[in-house]
Design a binder for these strands. Structure first.
Lengths: 104, 104
DNA sequence: CAATCACATAAGTATATGCTTATGTGATTC
DNA sequence: GAATCACATAAGCATATACTTATGTGATTG
């Protein structure tokens, strides 16, 4: 789970879409497929990349494998972003609002 | 300047390094090269990608071209990250501290 | 226990990407 | 104004990547 793996994983729009869908709630690989035009092996490969990056984690449940967002991956991005906080104030009102929300 | 361009730009470790170096202060392409083993055209191409992603902006100064961090790109990542704030609390103490800092 | 299901892995292929060398371009300098 | 400097662009090439079809694997089902 390095920054390189994380950014490479998120560089693919399909993987960002999968991640986004997962963020709405844990789901197995088949459920993830509907609504996205993608073959079963392709989905499996994408999930493997997301997992390797630490953005997602899996749990076997019978013959299904349940996937969920792994907060560690997001935290890693937040830390990367944090390095450049000197440049945030110029345009960061939206984020600031989100953070206020977090404090509640 | 779309999310796709931004994540693709940051997926390359050399470009992240260039961006990181730029974040310490504006610099021209030649100055960016020292300390990084990279040819002149390669640097030019990387800067072009970073610029296309809105992570960096340039300004001609005589025969030099000065590059600097473009906060818009960072803001875009912050917004992307913000969508998943539901997953932050698990590990986000460090970011929270950074944000407190920002409010001052 | 044979069939099926949910998913992973293998192997091949087409495109994308990051580099190289060569050349172009606008600006300064002698 | 010819040479040089700082950088961009072009073209070619090697590797990476995202997909495909085919097959493997562990678990449930009839």
């Amino acid at each position: 789970m390095e920054q390189d793996d994380i950014f490479k994983a998120l560089a693919d729009p399909t993987r960002r879409r999968i991640f986004d869908k997962l963020s709405a709630g844990a789901m197995n690989a088949s459920a993830l497929r509907d609504g996205i035009a993608i073959s079963q092996p392709a989905m499996s490969q994408h999930l493997s990349v997301l997992r390797g990056a630490g953005l997602v984690r899996e749990e076997r449940q019978g013959r299904y494998v349940n996937y969920e967002v792994n907060p560690d991956g997001l935290a890693e991005i937040a830390l990367w972003l944090g390095k450049y906080r000197a440049y945030w104030p110029a345009r960061i009102d939206a984020l600031r609002a989100l953070l206020k929300e977090m404090d509640q």
